[in-house]
Amino acid sequence: MGHLEGKVAAISGTANGQGRVALERFRAEGAIVVGGDIRSDDDTPYLDVTDEASVRDWIETAVQRHGRIDILYANAGAVRFGAVDTQSFEDWRFTLAAELDSVFLCAKYAWPHLKKTRGTIITVGSTAGLTGSVTNDRVAHSASKGGVIAATRQLAAEGARHGITANCISPGMIVTPGSQENLLAPDHPMRDIASAIPLGRLGTAEDVVNVAVFLASDAAAYVTGANVVVDGGWSIVLPG
């Protein structure tokens, strides 16, 4: 029997990367998974996490098909990097919508169903929400991920009276198709960042999802409002 046997999990952003690994792992742990992504396929219905109607329909369809939601894993996000003096307002708004509005919308529409099941919310922050960076211009990304961490704490506070727990996972440098295209590209100043990570390697999607499985399981029933940093110790040393 898996750690999530019989639970219904709604996971956003399951087309690839951490979301795809989460979908497969949660199913392996016994969960019924309803995925969603703007890049839909046979295993992942269409979902635009920045569009209120799309999120509402995704949640309601999950409930209609499976009767309930026990776990919301608000994984989906997208980012446009840039410094404060060069980033366009359009890119700022795009990043905050994709990384912060998305969490609000998913939590808002899952909330009444999670109240019925005394369920759990998992969000995805980042070490970018904890510290600044001199090697990556990311003002919008830092703002949005800092907001996700703060919002998760408030969700935990508001959810406690209903038996809802809410926790955040903040990854450091994780190898994904997205990070390989930008932060780990050969011409990016962060390409050799593994040498600054105490554990001596980049993270994997599996490293992140391992924590998500725990937070989604009954073993974490007394854990709420936490921000679990998954970065190999990167954020606790200098250079950060």
Rank of each mutant, 00 (worst) to 15 (best):
G67V: 01
G67N: 04
R68S: 14
R68M: 12
I69H: 04
I69V: 12
D70K: 07
D70H: 07
D70M: 07
I71M: 10
I71Q: 11
L72S: 13
Y73W: 15
A74L: 08
A74Y: 10
A76P: 11
G77A: 08
A78F: 14
V79K: 09
V79D: 14
V79M: 13
R80D: 09
R80G: 03
R80F: 11
R80V: 14
R80P: 08
F81Y: 15
F81H: 12
F81A: 09
F81E: 09
G82N: 05
A83L: 12
A83F: 15
A83K: 13
T86E: 15
T86D: 15
Q87P: 03
F89A: 14
E90Q: 12
E90I: 09
E90L: 09
D91C: 09
D91K: 07
D91T: 07
F94W: 07
L96M: 13
L96W: 10
A97G: 15
A98I: 02
E99I: 09
E99T: 14
L100T: 03
L100N: 09
L100W: 10
L100H: 10
L100P: 05
L100I: 06
D101H: 05
D101E: 13
D101Y: 03
S102V: 02
F104L: 11
F104C: 02
F104G: 01
L105S: 02
L105K: 00
L105Q: 00
L105H: 01
L105M: 02
C106F: 11
A107E: 00
A107P: 01
A107T: 04
K108G: 00
K108T: 01
Y109A: 03
Y109C: 03
Y109T: 00
A110P: 04
W111T: 01
W111N: 03
P112H: 07
H113T: 01
H113W: 06
L114H: 08
L114F: 09
K115A: 11
K115S: 04
K116I: 10
T117N: 01
T117P: 02
T117L: 05
R118P: 05
G119F: 03
G119N: 01
T120M: 08
I121M: 06
I121V: 11
I121N: 04
